[in-house]
Nucleic acid binder design. Structure first.
Lengths: 119, 119
DNA sequence: CATATATTTGAACAAATGTTCAATTATTTA
DNA sequence: TAAATAATTGAACATTTGTTCAAATATATG
């Protein structure tokens, strides 16, 4: 059912609408959050926040296939969240962006505080 | 293909493994990020960071059905990201958690910085 | 060049997600 | 009580996502 009233709380709506974020920024933010919304990728990024690692190392650590990890890294690379350097056959990955590890840290802290309060 | 080597970079892997985050924290963090990974929900949360609003207001602002917004709010409520108060028939929603608006703000800033660098 | 190793890629498939629609609940007012 | 309004809910659907599998690249070495 669609709400039939013109505006229930016109003032509040106008105040919020005047500060509306740009649609492009919203979409880009959603994309970044989506990249961080997978447990495997959080673990990858957390590990990379400690040291650079190759695909094979990460696969071992996560107990997952090299292919699966590589697909995740491709996504993170496309969003410039990780960078890489090649050394012979081996590709070393590391965090490209300090902000991302800050985001993860904030979220982890938030989650840990939340569970303390809840008991 | 699974990597056959025992550990390509044993020291690095051990360092990262020693600081591995708790699985539960990883899952909870992923859930929070997932809640933030939808454009509609980012807009809802941004609007609520400015003022409390009812479901109908939000539906109008987003140009979406009341039902769709209500489904999103249910998710955000379940994760204690928004809270609500009832006033007669109307349910007013607002942010439950300051950390969340901080996370969104950080991400928005990150995105905006990124696009500056890229040109 | 042929072989081995490290990684990437594309297709396929199951599982999860966002929206719509129709029905339901909760509250107010006639 | 009946009608109207605000919101919630469940089922259904198309779309997206994460993983696996098999095949393809890229690099080093015999």
């Amino acid at each position: 059912m669609k709400c039939g009233v013109e505006y229930i709380h016109r003032d509040a709506v106008e105040r919020a609408e005047n500060q509306m974020i740009d649609e492009g920024v919203v979409l880009d933010s959603a994309t970044v959050f989506k990249a961080l919304s997978d447990p495997t990728r959080i673990k990858i990024l957390h590990a990379l926040s400690i040291t650079e690692l190759c695909v094979c190392d990460l696969a071992k650590m996560m107990g997952m296939s090299v292919s699966a990890i590589s697909h995740h890294l491709r996504l993170l690379r496309a969003l410039r969240i990780v960078k890489f350097r090649k050394e012979g056959k081996v590709v070393f990955y590391s965090l490209d962006d300090v902000h991302i590890s800050a985001l993860i840290k904030s979220c982890v802290e938030h989650v840990q505080e939340g569970s303390e309060v809840e008991g």
